[in-house]
Write a protein that binds this DNA or RNA. Structure first.
Lengths: 238, 238
DNA sequence: CGATCTATTGACTAATTTCAACAAACGTGG
DNA sequence: CCACGTTTGTTGAAATTAGTCAATAGATCG
């Protein structure tokens, strides 16, 4: 429990807000004005930032690190909703209602979180109405992503979802002409399984099948090389 | 194809915007100013309002009727994302990008849709910044619903999802002390199955099991009486 | 009243999970 | 830097769950 609370002063790159898309379109002067509302907190790997059932803390913006947002069933099975990286936020609903948090947020690596209290956020939006638009853009995009997650879970089987998620992870670093892309998982295979709504065992088996068929090559625990992108695309249900 | 286009004039209850939560906090004068941007269109039952791949049309607000938003797999399986009722909207992403629509929208009953073009919407938000906040509230709530949909699909089996969805449908009309609630499905059982990510047959079987066990009683095609709410809650994975 | 759409049921098959045992990789402290 | 304990990942066999196909029944609508 080594997290410490302090106001959001200059960090190594200047104001922490520079990392935050919903705020970094402001002028330095405006940022300075807002910065007094923000407090920052550190979480070690494995620490829970919030848990389902907690009182809402306001808007939480990831300044640095990586955060797993998930739901747990009563039998302990986990469904990951998304992985937050620097600049992402959570708790937008706290702007409108006093509600209890419905998901768990866990730091996957050492993480800095900026917090803006509900009442302060209202002032900020009042002074800078463009922030509401930025929030709307982000939330709309997350909704689009969430709906595509529903699509994946509802329409495709495990094999198709595994193929799809590998392709998505590779997408960022894909070089169009090459069919061979190496990717390093930023989360464990266990977490990857939970993201696509299956078990470790099923994921492991499907990856083994893909490897047998020559579609991928696995090295160590977290490195996957895509050898036949077309084959995976066909499987994933184009 | 009997849909006709006309500007959003007075309908039976006055300006169509009165039905629309994102707009109905405005004064009559403000509404009048906005109304010139809005055009309204009618769709018969079964007509497609938009289809995946279409160019975005701007913000579409349901004025009257019911709309099914869904995704289709390449093999024709359907996943319903949500059912829109009067006051709900779609196409919020069109405020930010020129994008192609990623879902299908079909009128389930005769439906009136108001359309505000992307560029006009930008003017409107500029003149009435509170609309951005209203949109943000709505989209944030939809995201919450979408994430709970992901949870259902990822963590619970068909039996649990069936129990849960019946309880949800009943919730609106639940009378706390009575354990017996009658509900009438506003969608077909086929659509209900597609909403919870299963097949007609599996839904039908699970409902039959619940009926055998005395948890529910089905009458006709669309009426379900809940006889033992507790039993369903236990099943659904509290 | 008949045609069409919607729902149910049975038998079978396929997909996925579960449980259990094992193996590999990781990181911590000596 | 190595050894050991812990975590993470893999594999097999069995059990369960859900989906498919096909036939039938029931509603609904013009």
């Amino acid at each position: 429990m080594s997290n410490s609370e302090h106001s959001c002063e200059l960090d190594s790159q200047g104001l922490c807000m520079h990392q935050v898309p919903i705020l970094n379109h402001l002028t330095d002067k405006e940022m300075l004005e807002i910065s007094r509302y923000i407090e920052s907190r550190h979480f070690d790997k494995g620490e829970m930032i919030v848990m389902s059932g907690d009182e809402s803390l306001g808007l939480l913006v990831i300044n640095k690190g990586e955060v797993k947002i998930s739901k747990l069933s009563s039998h302990g099975k986990e469904q990951i909703l998304r992985i937050l990286k620097a600049g992402d936020f959570m708790g937008e609903l706290s702007l409108f209602h006093n509600y209890s948090i419905t998901s768990n947020a866990e730091a996957l690596i050492p993480t800095e979180v900026c917090r803006i209290k509900r009442s302060d956020m209202k002032h900020i939006i009042n002074d800078f109405p463009n922030i509401a638009l930025k929030l709307l853009e982000e939330v709309s995009e997350r909704l689009e992503t969430a709906e595509s997650h529903i699509e994946q879970l509802g329409l495709y089987n495990v094999e198709q979802r595994v193929a799809k998620v590998i392709l998505q992870l590779a997408e960022a670093k894909t070089n169009p002409q090459s069919h061979s892309v190496a990717l390093t998982l930023s989360i464990s295979k266990g977490n990857l399984a939970s993201l696509i709504g299956t078990t470790n065992e099923s994921l492991s088996r499907k990856l083994a099948v893909f490897e047998d068929q020559g579609f991928i090559k696995q090295t160590g625990q977290r490195s996957i090389q895509i050898l036949d992108k077309d084959a995976l695309e066909n499987l994933s249900g184009i």
